[in-house]
Simulated assay, not measured.
Amino acid sequence: MTRILLTAFIFCLSFSLSAQYGNGRYTFVFLNTNPNKAEISQAAIDSLQTGHMNNINRLVKDKKMIAAGPFFTGGGVFLFDTNVEETKTILNSDPAIAADRYILEVFSTDPIPHNAVKKTLCTLWDKNEADVEMAMNYYFVRYKSNKENEDIAAVKTNRFTENLIRSVSHKSGQNTIIGALNLNENEGQLIFYQSNIEGGIEADFAAHELVKKGLMTYEHSQIYFPKGVFCEN
């Protein structure tokens, strides 16, 4: 299973975060565990999981999927170098998705340019699987727009998220924030960071100005990713 997971996480594309900002060319997918999924045998679950991982490996080799990673608590994320419509077609090829094991959220996305965030992702495509080291200290923060608030238009600016990135980097070190993405159509932002503190530094991200104002909510999770994909040491 470890070898399959390592292969699934390999990134197949290097790109400039700042150069691609504003194009909306990438697609980010949340795979949320379906609480109402059908009760099936363990053998059927194992078969679906094998097909799920094989499909991920195929999409990575086809250079359509940039990244895949699971949360510690279940579910996971996909990042594609395809537009939303192509991504939706691709997702139908996943047997676990076809079997309604996940509830999907699909977003067009751009990197958030900031001098505290690495400007490129580093490909691990040429690495031997045995040489890929899994990082256990990665965390993921999702900011979601509160669309019921009449001031929701204010969320469209990244200024508040950039201020938070600057604050966290100053407090915890320049290498803490390793990636940031903007979900287009005013759907919020995503931040990847690393921390050796058990449970991460969630309180720092809860201090986002728009969260305090009620314009956004946030989710904080630990996530598996291989070391080096964000060009970190």
Results as ranks from 00 to 15, higher is better:
residue 176 T to W: 01
residue 181 L to M: 12
residue 171 K to T: 15
residue 182 N to M: 03
residue 206 A to D: 06
residue 208 H to F: 05
residue 186 N to Y: 01
residue 184 N to W: 15
residue 166 R to D: 06
residue 184 N to T: 08
residue 197 I to S: 00
residue 175 N to G: 02
residue 200 G to W: 02
residue 167 S to I: 07
residue 196 N to M: 05
residue 189 Q to G: 11
residue 200 G to F: 01
residue 182 N to P: 00
residue 199 G to F: 06
residue 185 E to M: 10
residue 204 D to T: 07
residue 168 V to Q: 09
residue 189 Q to R: 11
residue 165 I to V: 08
residue 158 N to A: 12
residue 191 I to C: 06
residue 181 L to D: 08
residue 199 G to P: 11
residue 203 A to L: 14
residue 198 E to T: 13
residue 168 V to K: 10
residue 183 L to H: 15
residue 186 N to S: 12
residue 195 S to H: 01
residue 195 S to R: 06
residue 161 T to E: 12
residue 182 N to K: 07
residue 160 F to V: 10
residue 187 E to C: 14
residue 174 Q to G: 12
residue 183 L to R: 15
residue 170 H to N: 06
residue 204 D to Q: 09
residue 186 N to E: 03
residue 185 E to G: 03
residue 200 G to D: 13
residue 160 F to K: 10
residue 201 I to C: 13
residue 194 Q to M: 09
residue 171 K to M: 14
residue 209 E to N: 08
residue 193 Y to G: 15
residue 184 N to E: 05
residue 189 Q to E: 04
residue 196 N to P: 05
residue 181 L to K: 05
residue 180 A to I: 11
residue 177 I to S: 10
residue 199 G to M: 12
residue 175 N to R: 05
residue 182 N to E: 04
residue 204 D to H: 05
residue 204 D to A: 07
residue 200 G to A: 04
residue 202 E to P: 14
residue 200 G to Q: 13
residue 180 A to W: 13
residue 173 G to S: 02
residue 201 I to T: 13
residue 191 I to Y: 03
residue 181 L to C: 00
residue 190 L to Q: 00
residue 162 E to F: 03
residue 203 A to T: 03
residue 166 R to M: 15
residue 201 I to L: 10
residue 190 L to M: 00
residue 203 A to M: 15
residue 180 A to N: 12
residue 163 N to I: 10
residue 177 I to W: 00
residue 170 H to A: 12
residue 185 E to T: 06
residue 178 I to N: 04
residue 174 Q to E: 07
residue 196 N to D: 09
residue 196 N to C: 00
residue 194 Q to C: 03
residue 178 I to H: 08
residue 182 N to I: 02
residue 166 R to K: 07
residue 196 N to V: 02
residue 171 K to C: 05
residue 183 L to T: 08
residue 200 G to V: 00
residue 200 G to L: 01
residue 184 N to R: 09
residue 205 F to Q: 02
residue 185 E to F: 02
residue 184 N to M: 09
residue 197 I to C: 01
residue 207 A to S: 12
residue 183 L to D: 14
residue 167 S to T: 14
residue 178 I to V: 08
residue 160 F to W: 13
residue 160 F to M: 02
residue 204 D to G: 06
residue 205 F to Y: 07
residue 209 E to C: 11
residue 207 A to P: 07
residue 194 Q to D: 01
residue 181 L to N: 02
residue 177 I to Q: 00
residue 172 S to W: 12
residue 204 D to W: 06
residue 186 N to P: 04
residue 187 E to H: 15
residue 169 S to I: 09
residue 170 H to G: 07
residue 208 H to K: 04
residue 188 G to T: 10
residue 171 K to D: 03
residue 179 G to T: 07
residue 180 A to R: 11
residue 208 H to G: 02
residue 168 V to M: 13
residue 185 E to H: 15
residue 176 T to V: 07
residue 188 G to L: 08
residue 174 Q to P: 06
residue 161 T to S: 14
residue 184 N to G: 09
residue 190 L to Y: 04
residue 200 G to T: 01
residue 193 Y to P: 11
residue 193 Y to E: 11
residue 178 I to S: 14
residue 196 N to F: 03
residue 163 N to W: 02
residue 198 E to W: 15
residue 202 E to T: 14
residue 197 I to N: 00
residue 173 G to I: 03
residue 174 Q to N: 07
residue 191 I to D: 03
